[in-house]
Simulated assay, not measured.
Amino acid sequence: MVFPTSFKEGLHLEGPVLAALEVAMNEFLPAGTEITTTDPDKRVAQCLSKRSSYDTHVLQAGEDLFFVWFSPDLSRCGLNVPILDGGAVYAIDARGRILDRR
């Protein structure tokens, strides 16, 4: 492994954006969470229990308002199953408070 000499081409998250993302993720899928299901096939629930199964989008809508959207991508678990309501959108203020969730 060789560490990069520059992060110019990398993704840059400013502090307030990262803070809003952290608040939303900890509310949406706290570390160690396991989603339960009554379905005998547990693969979808297992996939939705992994943070790495979600794409994350952050929109800064003002100096002190952020929207964070989590949308699942089950193909990361080798599944081709439609999910109708597997994600969420959070409105987070600059103080780290969740204003709303949809």
Rank of each mutant, 00 (worst) to 15 (best):
P82F: 05
V23G: 03
S6R: 06
V81W: 10
D85I: 13
C77D: 01
V2A: 14
L59V: 11
F7T: 10
P4G: 04
G10S: 13
E34P: 02
A88T: 08
C47W: 00
V17H: 06
N26F: 07
T37D: 09
E34M: 14
F7R: 05
E22Y: 09
S6C: 04
D93V: 02
R51M: 09
R95Q: 10
T33V: 03
G32I: 03
Y90P: 00
V17D: 10
G62V: 01
A88E: 11
E14N: 10
E27L: 01
T36A: 12
T33K: 10
P16Q: 04
H12Q: 13
A45D: 05
R102L: 12
A91D: 06
G86F: 02
E63C: 06
I83L: 15
R102S: 13
D55M: 07
A31M: 05
F67W: 13
G86I: 01
R76Y: 14
I98F: 00
A20H: 01
D73N: 15
C77Q: 06
C77I: 07
I35Q: 11
D64N: 07
K50D: 13
E14T: 10
R97G: 12
R76W: 10
D55H: 11
F67Y: 13
A61Q: 08
S52E: 15
R101D: 03
P82N: 04
M1L: 07
R101C: 01
F70W: 00
T33E: 09
H57L: 08
R43F: 01
P40E: 13
N80Q: 14
V81S: 11
E22K: 12
D41G: 04
R97F: 14
L21Y: 15
V44Y: 04
F7K: 10
P40T: 15
M25H: 06
A94P: 00
A91L: 03
V58F: 02
D93M: 04
S75L: 09
V58M: 04
N26C: 07
I35G: 05
C77Y: 02
R97M: 11
G86N: 04
E63K: 12
W69V: 09
D41W: 02
D93F: 02
V89T: 09
D85C: 14
K8P: 03
R102A: 08
V81C: 08
G96P: 01
A31Q: 08
G87L: 00
M1R: 12
A20M: 03
P40Q: 11
C47M: 02
V81F: 10
E22N: 09
T36W: 07
Y54V: 00
G86T: 01
T38D: 11
F3R: 11
R43A: 08
A94H: 15
A61E: 11
Y90W: 02
L99G: 12
G78T: 03
E63P: 08
F67I: 09
S53H: 00
E34F: 11
A88S: 12
R97D: 10
G32M: 05
D64I: 05
T38K: 11
T33S: 13
L11H: 12
D64G: 08
I98V: 15
G96M: 14
S75P: 05
T37A: 12
